[in-house]
């Protein structure tokens, strides 16, 4: 099962969550990786922890998004995944 939110455009970030497989794999690509790669990874890990995601694969394709945008897109992807899981348990 897979859900995503956000877009690969300037100032945005595309977040994909794919269920299945342990341990959790976090793949990050960013236009500003050299400058902010560690910050993005830390923020993403905290969010995944917050939403209780400990398995599967999470792909973050960042295009210079603010942290609040990453938070919003992650939340939307998680909510969409939960919605899918409710529809097809």
């Amino acid at each position: 099962m897979q859900a995503e939110a956000g877009y690969a455009v300037k100032g945005d970030v595309r977040v994909q969550i794919l269920t299945g497989g342990e341990p959790l794999k976090l793949k990050i690509t960013s236009k500003v990786e050299k400058l902010y790669g560690d910050q993005i990874r830390t923020a993403a890990e905290l969010l995944l922890q917050h939403y209780g995601i400990h398995s599967g694969t999470v792909i973050i394709d960042d295009h210079g998004a603010l942290e609040l945008v990453l938070q919003a897109r992650m939340r939307s992807a998680v909510e969409r995944l939960q919605h899918l899981q409710e529809e097809c348990p």
Partner: peptide, 15 residues
């Protein structure tokens, strides 16, 4: 619509 309202909520809360 769903991701837009989450995004606007985030901007309003912290930008």
């Amino acid at each position: 619509k769903d991701e837009a309202r989450v995004l606007c909520g985030a901007y309003l809360a912290s930008f």
